[in-house]
Write a protein that binds this DNA or RNA. Structure first.
Lengths: 214, 214
DNA sequence: CACTCGTGTTACCGCAAGTAACATGCACGT
DNA sequence: ACGTGCATGTTACTTGCGGTAACACGAGTG
């Protein structure tokens, strides 16, 4: 007597939830991550307590919002990663996809990277890193999986793959962040430079005259 | 008639400032970045307005605090970077220095990376990246300079050096963050894996049986 | 018709950032 | 000796946000 009815009600609840998320999205896109719950509620045409009924607290709303965007971005990245081409081309395509995404929607990007999750109350039991952007972690794990699946790295390959997954993602992220702020070169140049780095050009480069190289 | 007196007064002011910073340091180390101004003032044995007179606002205090630690860390890194050894050894030493630092004082590390800079008031004119941790930017620029000075990268070397500087720092940071959270391997193994990545092992690895490699 | 349940509201609490206005100690010129 | 600056310190306040309690309406059901 409950399950069928439940689905009916849950559907409307889910629709509401989606509407609220889209409203929140608009506000966050406009005001950045410090958007207030009041502002979001106003944008959605309702008031605060409803948001809290749906998402628990601000962290919950932000987590839901972040999950949407993160999932979307990860889908794009997976597509680039799975394209039929050789390794170097795929690496470049993946880098370019990521950079194009953050270039197109910098506000979203900033929101995902800096959830600003400090409140006054409770749960400060942090283990460092538990709070840092989950997007990076997910991308790192995903990439690690791909590396482990496809590359023959010999003994210790699994550990190596995870280190590399997180490392490469971090490289991409930091370079992208810097690039987005200063725009020192075109996206294509950036992609090429990063791929060159991954391809060992750092180790291969010669010293400059005057001493042992870096 | 004033300069001599000024230096006298300024000295005492500077000493106060340092005492306040050390108190703030203790609190941030204990409570994390969400430490309140009240708590910091209490730890210093004074009250809020004095903090505001010295540092303007919370961002000012945090900036001053961050600068201290950032400078200290950068000094360590420079030392590792300038040691008399070949390139690979120096890269490993630098990575290890960084990782040892964040391992030894995770609270400081977390504070530096996530200043939690959202307030209610003004200045939200962000240019993405303006808010992201200044430590990463400074490390990236510093490393870029070293790379540019010491490596012969041919035409476009300057751009390449900057991209690489920020990219390598990001790699180090993300991998360190993940490692600190999960501790999947020893520090030495992590260092070695990252150096291997920079040395082109990703490009050199063979495909696994069953398809074109990553 | 009473009953409940989901949806919505207003009005409030607690807390932290930041400020205004008042108090006090100490060096100075005359 | 005495007011005059000036830095240092205080209490008490405002503002704004996250979060909650208590109340109010509308629809389906015995």
């Amino acid at each position: 007597m409950d399950t069928t009815q439940r689905t009916e009600q849950q559907r409307s609840a889910d629709r509401r939830r989606r509407e609220l998320l889209e409203a929140a999205d608009r506000v966050v896109l406009r005001d950045g991550p410090q958007a207030s719950m009041n502002a979001i509620a106003a944008e959605a045409g309702i008031t605060k307590p409803i948001l809290y009924r749906h998402f628990g607290d601000k962290g919950g709303l932000y987590a839901a919002l972040a999950k949407r965007h993160t999932d979307a971005l990860l889908d794009s990245l997976r597509a680039a990663l799975d394209a039929p081409a050789d390794r170097r081309e795929r690496v470049e395509a993946t880098l370019d996809t990521y950079l194009a995404a953050i270039e197109a929607r910098p506000q979203v990007y900033r929101f995902l990277m800096h959830p600003s999750e400090g409140g006054q109350g409770g749960e400060q039991g942090f283990d460092v890193g538990k709070h840092s952007a989950p997007l990076l972690r997910r991308m790192g794990e995903e990439l690690a999986q791909v590396i482990e699946d496809r590359l023959d790295l010999g003994p210790g390959g699994q550990r190596l793959a995870r280190v590399w997954g997180h490392g490469i993602v971090g490289m991409m992220h930091a370079a992208g962040d810097w690039w987005l702020g200063e725009r020192p070169c075109s996206r294509a140049e950036l992609v090429r430079s990063l791929a060159d780095l991954l391809w060992g050009r750092l180790a291969a480069a010669g010293d400059k005259i005057g001493g042992p190289g870096f």
